[in-house]
């Protein structure tokens, strides 16, 4: 299976909201669409899914135009909602039926995800009055986080091959974030194709193999995350010592970014400079507790790239 996005383009009047977006996924995994607010991520997703008309370009799934007829798609939109006055169970079964899932299969899936997402009490409430059939709760009786869980569940009910998640973790507390993450990992293990847009770089780094960074509707960085990172080299040095080493850092030509109780975040030009600093410390009998030399984080790459594009 493969997903190929070729030269997607969208304009509103004279304003270009997405310019020539292309990327591809030949293997299951997670592809991240990153960018500042208004960069064109949601527009790109909407065009890919056919919600928004394309001004140019194509989206292919197994070499055919992507559609719900040839691909089972699950979508968690950035703008989320549920029918406020229908019971949760009723609307989940409806959403599943629109994706061609039978009522009995939908019920099994709902039961499974209700337990995984810890929303059983809302979908299978216990009757407060004796002899009265309990009715599953309505959306307006749920917190925002729990509504988000139900929406996530709706996106997964048809066991989709391609899952598109637009800001899936925004607004969630740490506990629910972990629940969502565990389900995303489960989908990755099951060999699904995921496209995710997010502002949470740490989360993207955790899952994604390939990324596209958009800024002002243009692609400013694209490729395999590890390779991008490698191209920057190991330039982040974290040092922990027992004495003050600011003098040695200054002498090495490295840049001290942050310091707190003999713990230092240092920006080095590369492995050579870091090793030279370490050798200098050892030769001066400075006890080194931690020496951690890393590639830049996605957050740093994002800030650098987007910052540069904004300044251009």
């Amino acid at each position: 299976m493969s997903l190929i996005v070729n030269h997607l383009h969208k304009k509103y009047g004279d304003k270009t909201v997405l310019e020539d977006l292309s990327f591809s996924m030949y293997d299951p995994g997670v592809y991240a669409l990153l960018g500042t607010n208004g960069a064109g991520k949601t527009t790109a997703i909407r065009m890919m899914l056919g919600i928004l008309a394309k001004d140019g370009g194509e989206v292919l799934w197994n070499e055919n135009p992507l559609s719900t007829e040839n691909c089972n798609i699950g979508y968690l939109a950035e703008e989320r909602g549920l029918y406020p006055k229908y019971s949760l169970m009723e609307q989940l079964i409806y959403f599943a039926s629109l994706r061609g899932v039978s009522k009995s299969d939908a019920k099994k899936k709902i039961r499974y995800y209700a337990e995984r997402l810890d929303v059983t009490e809302y979908l299978y409430p216990v009757s407060e009055k004796k002899g009265r059939k309990p009715i599953s709760k309505k959306a307006d009786q749920l917190s925002k986080g729990n509504q988000q869980k139900i929406q996530f569940m709706a996106a997964l009910l048809s066991d989709p091959e391609l899952i598109v998640l637009d800001e899936p973790l925004s607004g969630l507390d740490p506990i629910n974030t972990d629940i969502f993450k565990s389900i995303i990992k489960e989908q990755i293990s099951a060999g699904k194709y995921l496209i995710m847009s997010s502002h949470q770089m740490a989360t993207v780094e955790e899952f994604c193999t390939d990324i596209t960074i958009l800024s002002k509707s243009k692609t400013i960085l694209q490729g395999n995350l590890n390779e991008i990172k490698k191209s920057y080299g190991r330039i982040n040095l974290h040092l922990k010592t027992e004495t003050d080493i600011k003098k040695f850092i200054s002498e090495s030509g490295a840049v001290l970014v942050n310091e707190k109780e003999n713990e230092y975040d240092i920006k080095v030009s590369g492995e050579e400079q870091a090793n030279s600093l370490l050798g200098n410390l050892i030769s001066n009998n400075v006890t080194v507790v931690t020496f951690d030399l890393r590639e830049p984080s996605l957050h740093e790459i994002f800030v650098e790239k987007v910052g540069n594009s904004v300044n251009e």
Binding site: G74, E79, R80, L98
Partner: peptide, 12 residues
């Protein structure tokens, strides 16, 4: 109004 439309558009 209930911001459901985007999700539904994928199916219908």
């Amino acid at each position: 109004a209930s911001k459901l439309v985007e999700m539904l558009m994928v199916s219908v």
